[in-house]
Design a protein around this nucleic acid. Structure first.
Lengths: 89, 89
DNA sequence: TGAATATGTTCCCGATCGGGAATATTTCAG
DNA sequence: CTGAAATATTCCCGATCGGGAACATATTCA
């Protein structure tokens, strides 16, 4: 396995878009296939696919393995507004 | 279940400390027991405990349910350095 | 247009999450 | 110090994740 992907530019703010979008963007920017990324991160190809497509029930440890390839880790931010509890109104 | 906890101050940056620390801080600031928070979020008491103590294999959906109580959601940030791949040296 | 590659979907299945409740600890006020 | 409340740990167990591989599409490019 490669030591670490060269990576080009890094996103300034913590969450421009969903995690999945970020991963896909980065993966493509680095010309990696899902399989490649999966191997680099130590997760399966299917997982990479699910992650990029926004599956919500993924486990944090696996997600972090992928994010780490791009020098990121899971964190938290302000919720997108209105999305608090279902106690809307 | 209560509509939404009042919440006091909100952390400016997206990840001052671990997610678990954040949750615990917030929970206490709002005088909630783990059981209360669990009910508010719709997760079990044990889960809240594990989350606050930093268990890494938790599922994102459940974590988000808890974070949402405090108006947050999972996101990603710069990794703490050195923590990239295991390709150290 | 057709082949090659990448991505998405499905299946099998062991591993483990997460709820719930009981029990052991820890924490804290009086 | 003492007892109550809160938190941590353990157990049972259904539900589902995640790896791996096969197969179906979708993309890409010459």
């Amino acid at each position: 396995m490669a030591p670490c992907v060269g990576l080009s530019m890094a996103s300034p703010e913590p969450g421009s878009g969903s995690i999945g979008e970020f991963v896909r963007r980065r993966r493509k920017a680095n010309r990696l296939s899902q399989r490649d990324l999966g191997e680099l991160a130590g997760v399966g190809t299917r997982f990479v696919s699910e992650l990029e497509r926004g599956k919500p029930t993924l486990r944090m440890d696996a997600v972090n393995k992928v994010l780490l390839v791009f020098g990121k880790v899971l964190s938290y931010t302000e919720a997108p507004r209105e999305v608090d509890l279902e106690a809307g109104t």
